[in-house]
């Protein structure tokens, strides 16, 4: 570094145009990556979505045919429905349970620290380990749930083979996996709530629910909105859990949009079709996040 400093300094002081542009040097590496790995792929994807292609090349220009086909494809529509269902199962649960845990564990005792560690630990496992663990809990032949059911003389439930139970089972797995993140976010927010608010409430002899609803929740409302948006974006991208636990079945009841994209592109060699589905997913996430943002920002007192 020392070597370059002198020249850089002299150049900086000498030439005004260089100085004007030098700032760009700092952002250039990132902008290059941004353009090459985000904008360019986005454009390629958009372009592919108007073609009939496979992974080996473009076959024909088809305009918006892929999109039209998507919206009349029952498998895709079911996948969209499945994705929303999954989001509805997980996002409120993650938010509410995360908040509840944070409220209970927001103190300095050692036990709270241990419990916080327990709830966060699963978050650091990778999706393949998480699904392996949960398949071994849920499968009716020798899974933990089945072993326990047998202890009580009950017939084991085949969670992953039942079209009604499969998605909730995947949601449960996901909540188990991801509960640490919202909890930690809420804990951080709770630390920021001014203590004197609570002290005033204590003087008023306010009840617990009252404190919760009129002090705590309003004070962390921005974090609640943030958690909901983060989780919506995360859970819309469901892929690994469904691919590894059920493969999208039974009867298409757990196939999310991302798995649909993967199958269309890599299994069925319909890359243009997959690209179109990816754009639809993009729009879905953007709309859901914006709607949530709109709703939560409107609630803010003017």
């Amino acid at each position: 570094m020392a070597m370059g400093d002198a020249t850089l300094r002299s150049r900086l002081s000498q030439s005004a145009p260089w100085r004007r542009w030098s700032g760009l040097l700092f952002v250039a590496p990132y902008l290059l990556l941004f353009a090459a790995m985000l904008i360019l792929p986005l454009i390629i994807g958009l372009r592919l979505s108007t073609t009939r292609s496979d992974l080996f090349g473009v076959k024909a220009e088809v305009g918006l045919e892929n999109y039209a086909r998507l919206f009349s494809d029952p498998v895709f529509l079911k996948a969209v429905g499945n994705t929303f269902y999954f989001v509805a199962l997980t996002v409120p649960a993650l938010t509410i349970i995360g908040l509840a845990l944070a409220l209970v564990l927001n103190n300095a005792s050692r036990w709270s620290a241990v419990l916080r560690a327990v709830f966060f630990a699963s978050t650091v496992l990778s999706v393949t380990v998480v699904t392996l663990i949960w398949r071994l809990v849920l499968i009716p032949d020798g899974g933990l749930a089945a072993v326990i059911a047998r202890l009580f003389g009950q017939a084991p439930i085949a969670f992953l083979s039942d079209p009604v139970l499969a998605m909730p089972a995947i949601a449960l797995t996901t909540i188990w996996w991801g509960i640490g993140l919202p909890m930690v976010l809420f804990l951080a927010a709770l630390q920021q709530v001014p203590r004197d608010l609570y002290e005033a409430a204590a003087l008023d002899n306010a009840s617990r629910p009252r404190i919760l609803f009129s002090i705590t929740l309003p004070a962390i409302r921005r974090t609640i909105a943030l958690v909901v948006i983060i989780e919506i974006i995360l859970q819309f991208q469901l892929f690994g859990q469904a691919q590894l636990m059920t493969g999208g079945g039974p009867n298409n009841s757990t196939r999310p949009v991302v798995l649909f994209i993967y199958e269309a592109g890599w299994k069925q060699w319909q890359l243009g079709y997959a690209a179109a589905a990816a754009q639809v997913l993009f729009a879905m996430i953007a709309i859901a996040a914006m709607a949530q943002y709109y709703v939560s920002s409107r609630k803010e007192p003017a």
């Binding site: 941004f34 986005l42 991208q237 994209i261």
Partner: peptide, 26 residues
């Protein structure tokens, strides 16, 4: 300060909204 700083930053912020799935094929 450099030309286009503000607009470039806004573009990058827009990038926050792009999920991996939308660009993975590209």
């Amino acid at each position: 300060e450099f030309p286009g700083r503000k607009i470039l930053f806004v573009v990058v912020l827009f990038g926050l909204a792009i999920p991996e799935q939308a660009v993975i094929i590209g």
